[in-house]
């Protein structure tokens, strides 16, 4: 086990800020971890929580949602709605035992290629020691058939 684990991250990048930030990072030849695979959405507000769950279920080790900075949303305040949904989604994932680092929300404006690249690097580093998510075991239950977890083993919900 000398090779570090290479996590796969699905990134949902908004068309106006963070997708362009990723474009800029490339144009500026900023080198960062090749672990994120991006999906373009018009606004981070389009990121339906089921997209995140789908990605995790399909084998992604982490999901990054990236949007414009609060107050700079191309669609006035779509990113604020994303933030609200994200908070709820995190509560849910925590109860399922999915580590906090696996789903992250990042703000990056179109001029912040370096910031987005750094966020991908950081997230990759955070996910490496966690290893694969193992959705079936973690979320669905020990053998993938949704066994009940004894109450004392249910992780405590922290304050958001």
């Amino acid at each position: 086990m000398s090779e570090p684990y290479e996590p796969v991250i699905v990134g949902f990048l908004c068309n106006w800020c963070s997708y362009r930030a990723a474009d800029l990072a490339g144009t500026a030849r900023i080198k960062y971890a090749p672990n994120m695979r991006a999906i373009r959405v018009m606004c981070s507000g389009r990121v339906d929580p089921q997209f995140v769950l789908k990605a995790l279920r399909e084998g992604a080790d982490g999901v990054m949602i990236a949007g414009c900075h609060p107050g700079e949303c191309h669609y006035v305040d779509g990113n604020i709605k994303t933030l609200r949904r994200f908070t709820l989604l995190k509560q849910l994932l925590r109860q399922w035992g999915v580590e906090d680092e696996r789903v992250q929300l990042v703000w990056a404006s179109a001029s912040e290629g370096n910031l987005l690249a750094a966020a991908v690097d950081r997230m990759t580093e955070q996910l490496r020691p966690l290893g694969p998510l193992r959705w079936k075991e973690t979320v669905l239950g020990r053998n993938g058939h949704g066994e009940f977890i004894p109450v004392e083993e249910v992780p405590a919900v922290e304050e958001v």
Binding site: R46, D48, Q50, F51, G78
Partner: peptide, 29 residues
């Protein structure tokens, strides 16, 4: 066309053209 309403609809009654659930979910796969 931001799609915020699409993501919010609890009945999945809203479709966002060119960014439908089907399209995005398939892309994830």
């Amino acid at each position: 066309g931001c799609g915020t309403c699409v993501a919010a609809c609890p009945s999945a009654a809203i479709t966002g053209a060119h960014f439908t659930n089907e399209q995005v979910l398939s892309e994830i796969e």
